[in-house]
């Protein structure tokens, strides 16, 4: 099905926003502006956007430690996120959680997560809630190739099948869990989707560096799950362009690996080539978007820098609603 001009522009804008957000963080972290552990999503933009472009605010996603892309794709506000990562009182979570814990329940973004594998069962629960309401909404978990080795992930998949939960397990296989490759750590290394099949659900595979392949695959998956067929899984083959966390020396990479990935597997480049060659959009359209995105990110950083820090009294807030 052909995407409209607006849909194409929107998809590119969302991917470019993630890219620009992350590239900027990379620079600011190197300057020592930002505290804590930050895991960048660069390289995987087509995965988050190709998935979330099918979702509404009332569909639920759960995310990971590498969550900025999922948040942005789900519509969490750029400036609030930037302020959060800067640890500001104006941040999405008031500076309490930071990069690894951004959540925006109103957007159906139930939380990034510092605990690998913690999200999948929560997505099942969100899906069961949607099933109770009978409104056709779904739960969706993003997990990495590393997270697929946690018992929680297995338990979630089995429970989703037996409860016919309208949940989608998205496995972003970026070929690394920290400094280890799935060829070592994952017993079905070249095939994570097959695990989901073994649990009794239907699984799809797509190129997570190609917006169109991810998007079209997800359309089928969403149709299947929204129709009440129970859970499904998708394995997206993707790449991470930076280290596991900012500051990672990445000695586990092969020679020239990053240059090769950036040359061959860049989802933004691939998107641009595809839409301009097909005459759907002009380079100028995409350049305009990039310039607008760059301005937005500049503003977000400026505002985050200028924003007030949380006050010490805020340490005590939000532990309970009442106590």
């Amino acid at each position: 099905m052909q995407l409209s001009r607006d849909e194409l522009l929107g998809a590119y804008r969302r991917m470019a926003t993630i890219r620009s957000f992350e590239e900027r963080l990379h620079d600011e972290i190197a300057k020592g502006e930002i505290a804590g552990f930050t895991h960048l999503y660069c390289g995987q933009e087509a995965a988050a956007v190709g998935v979330c472009d099918h979702l509404g605010d009332d569909d639920f996603i759960v995310s990971t430690h590498r969550g900025h892309g999922h948040c942005l794709a789900k519509g969490v506000e750029v400036k609030g996120m930037m302020a959060e990562i800067y640890g500001r009182a104006t941040g999405t979570c008031k500076g309490k959680g930071g990069s690894m814990h951004i959540a925006d329940i109103d957007k159906g973004m139930l939380g990034a997560n510092g605990i690998v594998g913690a999200g999948a069962p929560q997505a099942v629960g969100a899906a069961l809630a949607a099933k109770m309401d009978g409104n056709g909404r779904i739960g969706l978990s993003f997990s990495g190739d590393g997270a697929c080795n946690q018992g929680t992930t297995f338990e979630a998949m089995n429970m989703a099948v037996v409860t016919k939960a309208p949940v989608i397990f998205v496995f972003e296989n970026n070929h690394y869990s920290e400094h280890t490759g799935p060829a070592y750590a994952t017993a079905t290394s070249t095939d994570i989707a097959g695990r989901a099949e073994a649990f009794g659900m239907k699984a799809w595979r797509a190129n997570g560096c190609d917006y169109f392949d991810t998007y079209e695959t997800m359309r089928e998956v969403l149709d299947y799950v929204r129709a009440g067929n129970g859970p499904a899984a998708v394995e997206l083959d993707t790449e991470r362009f930076y280290g596991h966390f900012e500051g990672d020396p990445q000695r586990y990479r092969g020679p020239g690996e990053i240059d090769r990935l950036r040359a061959e597997r860049d989802c933004l480049t691939a998107f641009r080539r595809r839409v301009t060659e097909a005459g759907l959009l002009a380079d100028a359209d995409l350049d305009t978007i990039e310039a607008e995105v760059a301005r937005l990110i500049d503003e977000a950083v400026d505002e985050a820098r200028a924003a007030p820090a949380p006050t010490p009294a805020m340490v005590l807030e939000d532990v309970y609603i009442s106590y």
Binding site: E178, H179, T180, P182, Y184, A185, Y252
Partner: peptide, 19 residues
Amino acid sequence: EDIVGGMGTAGGPEAIGGI
């Protein structure tokens, strides 16, 4: 986890020696 580091990667187990 990653106490050797680099297992199953092109760089190989090159003794990251745990994070």
